[in-house]
Design a binder for these strands. Sequence first.
DNA 1: GTATATTATGAATATTTTTCATGAGTGTCA
DNA 2: TGACACTCATGAAAAATATTCATAATATAC
Lengths: 300, 300
Amino acid sequence: MIDRIHLKIMAAIDRHGSLTAAAESLYLTQSALSHTMKKLEQQTGVTLWHKEGRQLRFTQAGEYLLQQALRLSPQLERVDQVLKEFADGDRGTLRIGMECHPCYIWLLTVVNPFLKAWPNIDVDVKQRFKFGGMAALFQHDIDLLVTPDPLLKKGVEFIPVFDYEQVLVLSTNHPLTKKAYVTPKDLSQETLYTYPVETERLDIFKDFLLPANTSPLRHKTLEATEIMLEMVAAERGVATLPLWLVQTYQDSLPITYQKLGKSGLKKQIYLGMRSNEDRSFTSAFIQMARASVESEGSST
Amino acid sequence: MIDRIHLKIMAAIDRHGSLTAAAESLYLTQSALSHTMKKLEQQTGVTLWHKEGRQLRFTQAGEYLLQQALRLSPQLERVDQVLKEFADGDRGTLRIGMECHPCYIWLLTVVNPFLKAWPNIDVDVKQRFKFGGMAALFQHDIDLLVTPDPLLKKGVEFIPVFDYEQVLVLSTNHPLTKKAYVTPKDLSQETLYTYPVETERLDIFKDFLLPANTSPLRHKTLEATEIMLEMVAAERGVATLPLWLVQTYQDSLPITYQKLGKSGLKKQIYLGMRSNEDRSFTSAFIQMARASVESEGSST
DNA sequence: GTATATTATGAATATTTTTCATGAGTGTCA
DNA sequence: TGACACTCATGAAAAATATTCATAATATAC
């Protein structure tokens, strides 16, 4: 029944004092306003104003409608404005999905400048997915996927961000440090620590142990990277992590590393996003991610 | 830009799960909804939802708009509802103007049951008018005028409510109590107490003293009826009040009264309202006013 | 009284909304 | 797998609505 235009007209009459002036302020004719409000009066059965000389005087109902107009009009304008911000990419949440546990620390170094560069965009990071990161991306549960396993599929695009080598982390006293490199069979007598995800998603299983039809003596899972490294340092077992991550801890813990296989286990981290979705801040994040890696000199 | 229909559509989609079901709930076609929202999307530049299989999934902007819709739609509906209440006379304020000071006590006996019978209608009483009660009525400052001086004018209607006699209130010891009635000349040696209004509006001047070209020795004004009567009782002067009012105080104070002139000063109280204004509760108030008087047996 | 304001209103016009008909995609089930 | 049922999108036509134009009616200022 009542519509936004009625609120605007009431507010304009109040502000400008006459129908004619109100009409001008709304870029309409006085006639249009008169007709519009007359129709509202007929539909609702109320009288909104009386003519008093050449002035208008609101009735009680008109006064009420004016109050509501003054209250509601700005709220509707605010909705317009926010919608425009969404359209311009000045507002939103960038939801990042992580399928690469150790990348979290790296991600934080990108998120920090991103938040500064895009003050109206929030960032959310998700690490658990019911049906995998790809499904989450397709279902719009996330907007960006950080993963070492890109999937060529219509509707998504993957961009390599950086290369890294997955290595076996060992206590400095560990016998395997003597070898030139580690073979799958070497691990069959070891306790292996990994993050608590499915073995299909763990490089050490997928790309190293399973092809050789081998498995470690024991497989234990841990959430926290630091604890995992402490376990290795305490000679409780071994773990696999990206080389760059091991290097950052090598100074503070008695740990070292070994190549997995003769030529090492080379990996790449990709950022995946839905194609044909053009949110400027998503692309901006990807740019910043690549830049962060290049400045470190550890990139493609 | 954004309009009420967009809010309703968003809320309906959320509630019914699909465009088709939402369209049905709004008594529109699916096509209409699709076109309407498409247009909004084009105007603002946002995407509100994605098709996911045969389902719709709101984007962040869509989710935002939905939240605003759920918040604002009920408020707009409430405005419709209140406007309808105004139209039906289920809401409003009855503003009563008084040009008859002593009638205030009588008025209260009408207002009380009125408030009970019309729980959504407020009552306001005004006693001071810049340009008189008639002007206030015309200017919609009041809706009802209680006055002993009806003015036959286009646009207003006056209905007599009750007859009364204006009498001179005297201390029981006053010499004038000995006479059969009081003449204008009798007052030329008296101190007269009246309400503080223009003499043209005081019956004692307008209908009694001025026609005889006489005036009282002294004229003092007082706001409160009770104090006025105390003054009279203390033999400080005389006053003129409606007979029925004097009678209610006669038991508790040493006062009595005298007819003004041989046949007494007969007055009538009228209720005036703007004609062609059809607010049911205004008429209802008039009905209750008349009824209150009839039950007392002091009416026309 | 005349000129200049105001709002209201009927008719004509312009614009917007809605429907109709249909296309294109997706899930279901025999 | 193919028929079917159901979804939303879309172009064109139809219907409804909003706006303007021209003008009346009325009030105010000079």
